[in-house]
Design a protein around this nucleic acid. Structure first.
Length: 807
RNA sequence: GGGCAAGUGGCGGAAUGGCAUACGCACAGGACUUAAAAUCCUGGGUCCUUUAAAGGACGUGAGGGUUCGACUCCCUCCUUGCCCACCA
């Protein structure tokens, strides 16, 4: 690197020290200013900052600094999501205690974050593994428990055999553990659940309030909640008379039902097959399906296994007798665990019917391609059409029939309208050490007893042996397990499961408002001042889990009267991933670029500038070393301005003044709409323009460009600001304003199109009227040549822009 | 299978329905230098006519449509990425 480069290393350390010593970014509230809470998703302390963090936190830092200079009280905190499995894995691998490992990681990450110059109020830092944080997890858990929203039940749960722990539905991806990628199996266990389903309606309805969230995230949450409205219909078993309920969203097809299908786990199966010749075969079938891991059941895709039960049911709408089948493609967890099959109008049913030679019956006629013989069907017709073979509903459109049939079924008592949801209750217990102990005590006399609030926190014992085998390590810590029952004072034992870490991160944004408050999870007054978060920034991978849980917690706390808002995050920005050569940067691919190495070679300002300039924040960006060079060159070019300031006494040129005001306008508007890449390109244009005007006095322009770049590259900006002679800290200055009057043009360039194609340009006075304009345009030599003697059909005039002549 | 997003020069990317390719990278030329680097300036969509100046045709994944005018809006299709997935 040549000696002409600006001394970024000394500048960056100098200003980081000054900011730290002066507590420049400590929150100081002025009563007459509005508030702005800018939050980035806090990291898991893995030990190293990666490029995704740099991108996330740089976007947030620009917004926080910008809002501060615009005169807001800004809350911009940072902390660590420090409970979780990797600490335990590291403990097993390196024989280090998870606490020691975690705190080392935090130390290194905090250092790196400081070296990137982010404007956090470090006095508000929090870590979720510390008891002054997790005690409030326990406190909130007890509130949930009291309201019957935390409960224990025995259930088939997702179990990761490698991690030896349970997983939430949300943590199972593709039948695999989200962390270690091993096959998840089903296991029956007593587990703690949070009744998030009690809030499903509100979680769905309030999505409409989130006007400033990406539509994509809203859709993903809506799909996850998965409300579907339909009708529950009662089918009678023909000989034994009991009722089988089925749920359908397509009640318009009910006259086309040719069989029923029950999930293999359905409790009524026993009753149906009892004493029938099929009994043994069916039991064998069920046993086989049950033993098949769910991941395999899913991966086999469209291959549907099934067996006839021997029983028949009566379709209540037309008294038709239909066979009852059992098949693995019907899930006990959804709906009623039983479906009515309409093979002509449902593709899954169609495939199953073809395979098992079951009947088909057409009840909705495709208007484009009417088919009357079901044998001609090549696939199910799932679209809209006209009802046929549907008794009194024949001839109606199926949409109309859907309503009328539902009404009729309800009137006759053959069923009722119902809605079913995909959302399940949230499984939070983990058989792991490194998490918040669940504050529950088991007493032989009193049963499940909650730990009294005054006894919180239930501290995580530090002496423990972690092997990664044999369930929860806390089970083996006698001094922890053995305790007294808070009710009867008799001997009792503690719950040894810990909480899933998503619990910790579901309310940390509230804790940041009063991080050291000791009387409750947060100071209500502080929270009602700062919350909701004005801008939340993080990765799309949290679109369902973290964001859904946080919304749920907020609603629960509102019901307790602890907060006065429904939704925690007003605006959400999901930033794109950082790629290298078109692939995600990851350890396994070995294509990681360490941010620290870039900071050492080019400085934090260059890294920050490049990562924002390379692509719009929401889009994925491809890492390029060449681009880094470009950003570095730009900062050097900016730095060199100092050599020219004050050298030339000529006045500020009109041209430069205009480009200065234009730059202020464009940069301001672009930051406000998160177009940070074009905001930077406008600063670059402005710098080019300063270099074109070195014959004039560039002092004012230089001061302005330093203010504009300061939110992106705070170190170099601070240093230049000082060298320009200012004593006051740059970040106490206000954001520059532009004068719209100076941006007014006197002359305007009109585009002249002929039949929509660009043919000429003319420069005219701004205030020209249409008559004059027409005259000038028609006398333009190029226009004359194009028109020749063809008649003018239309003269389209878009004021201040263009003229289109149609000939 | 369903949902969402995207497809623009050699590359990253710009463009309230109105100059396609701003800004940057890479490249080429010039200035400075003994030289190189750095720096400053200039030039680059493709093709055709032309010594040149200049002019023309074609150009935003493919095809169609709406419009005086489409990268932008609508329809069909292709490709890529992400998310969800036997959800009745």
């Amino acid at each position: 690197m040549s000696q002409s480069n600006y001394p970024f290393r000394s500048i960056e350390t100098k200003w980081q020290k000054i900011w730290s010593k002066n507590k420049t970014f400590k929150v100081r509230v002025s009563k007459n200013k509005p508030k702005y809470y800018c939050l980035e998703m806090f990291p898991y302390p893995s030990g190293k900052i990666h490029m995704g963090h740099v991108r996330n936190y740089t976007i947030g830092d620009v917004i926080a600094r910008f809002k501060k200079m615009q005169g807001f009280n800004v809350l911009h905190p940072m902390g660590f999501d420090s409970f979780g499995q990797p600490a335990e894995n590291a403990a097993i691998k390196n024989r280090t205690h998870p606490k020691i490992w975690t705190e080392k990681c935090i130390f290194w990450m905090r250092k790196e974050l400081k070296e990137l110059g982010f404007s956090y109020d470090w006095e508000r830092e929090l870590s979720t593994h510390l008891s002054d944080y997790y005690r409030w997890n326990q406190w909130i858990f007890l509130k949930l428990f009291k309201k019957n929203l935390a409960y224990k039940k025995k259930e088939e749960v997702n179990w990761c055999p490698d991690c030896e722990t349970t997983l939430a539905n949300e943590e199972v991806l593709d039948g695999k553990c989200w962390r270690c990628k091993s096959e998840v199996i089903q296991k029956e266990l007593e587990q703690w659940f949070i009744k998030i389903t009690s809030y499903k309606e509100r979680l769905l309805e309030d999505l409409d309030k989130l006007k400033n969230w990406p539509a994509q995230v809203i859709t993903m949450q809506r799909n996850w909640l998965g409300k579907s409205e339909g009708v529950e219909v009662y089918f009678k078993e023909k000989e034994r008379g009991f009722t089988i309920s089925v749920f359908t969203t397509r009640v318009d097809t009910i006259f086309g039902v040719t069989y029923l299908v029950l999930a293999p786990e359905h409790p009524l199966i026993k009753e149906i097959i009892k004493g029938r010749p099929q009994e043994k075969e069916v039991l064998e079938f069920i046993e086989r399906i049950k033993n098949k891991p769910k991941s395999i059941r899913l991966s086999e895709g469209l291959k549907k296994e099934g067996i006839f039960s021997g029983g028949f049911a009566i379709n209540p709408v037309n008294n038709e007798e239909i066979p009852i089948w059992i098949a693995d493609y019907v899930l006990m967890e959804y709906g009623t665990g039983a479906i009515m099959a309409v093979p002509s109008h449902d593709q899954r049913d169609f495939l199953f019917a073809k395979e098992h030679n079951l009947q088909l019956k057409i009840v909705i006629q495709n208007p484009q391609n009417p088919v009357s013989d079901p044998k001609e069907l090549k696939e199910a017709y799932e679209g809209d059409g006209i009802q046929v073979n549907s008794a009194q509903f024949d001839g109606l459109s199926n949409q109309e029939a859907k309503e009328k049939i539902a009404n009729w079924i309800e009137e006759k008592g053959m069923g009722k309208r119902a809605s079913y949801w995909r959302l399940r209750d949230w499984l939070i217990s983990r058989q792991r050490y490194w998490g918040t102990p669940i504050p529950i005590i088991y007493c032989d006399r009193c049963g499940i007893v909650s730990v009294p609030e005054k006894d919180l926190p239930v501290r995580l014992p530090s002496k423990v042996s972690i092997s990664g085998r044999g369930g929860s390590p806390l089970n083996y810590v006698k001094s922890f397990v053995q305790t007294k029952c808070p009710k009867c004072k008799g001997s009792a034992r503690r719950e040894t499961d810990t909480m899933a870490t998503f619990f910790d991160s579901s309310w940390y944004f509230l804790r940041f408002c009063s991080p050291h408050y000791e009387k409750s999870p947060f100071n209500k007054k502080e929270v009602s001042f700062w919350m909701p978060v004005d801008q939340y920034i993080g990765g799309i991978e949290h679109a369902v889990l973290h964001l859904l849980y946080s919304r749920f917690f907020t609603k629960f706390l509102k019901d307790l009267g602890l907060v006065d808002f429904d939704e925690p995050f007003q605006r959400l920005l999901t930033q794109g991933m950082v790629l290298k050569d078109g692939e995600v940067m990851s350890k396994s691919r070995g294509n990681i670029v360490d941010p620290d190495s870039i900071v050492k070679r080019y400085g934090a300002d260059t890294l920050r500038l490049y990562i924002l300039f390379a692509a719009p924040p929401q889009v994925e960006m491809d890492w390029s070393e060449k681009g880094i060079e470009g950003a570095f060159r730009f900062l050097n070019r900016l730095w060199r301005l100092l050599d020219y300031v004050g050298k030339n006494k000529n006045k500020l040129s009109k041209d430069l003044e205009k480009s200065m005001h234009r730059a202020i306008k464009e940069v301001t508007e672009d930051i406000e709409s998160f177009k940070l890449n074009t905001a930077i390109s406008h600063i670059m244009e402005f710098l080019n323009s300063i270099y074109q005007n070195l014959n004039y006095d560039i002092t004012k322009a230089t001061e302005t460009i330093v203010l504009l770049i300061s939110v992106f590259c705070p170190h170099i900006a601070s240093e230049m600001w000082q060298r320009l002679g200012f004593k006051k800290d740059l970040f106490k200055e206000s954001w520059p304003r532009f004068d719209p009057f100076l941006l007014k043009e006197e002359k305007i360039t009109y585009i002249i199109q002929i039949n929509g194609k660009l043919r000429s340009k003319i420069e005219v006075d701004v205030n020209i009227n249409e008559e004059e304009l027409k005259e000038i345009v028609l006398s333009d030599p190029k226009v004359k040549r194009w028109i020749q003697d063809r008649p003018l059909k239309r003269f389209i005039h878009v004021p201040r822009r263009l003229v289109n002549l149609v000939i």
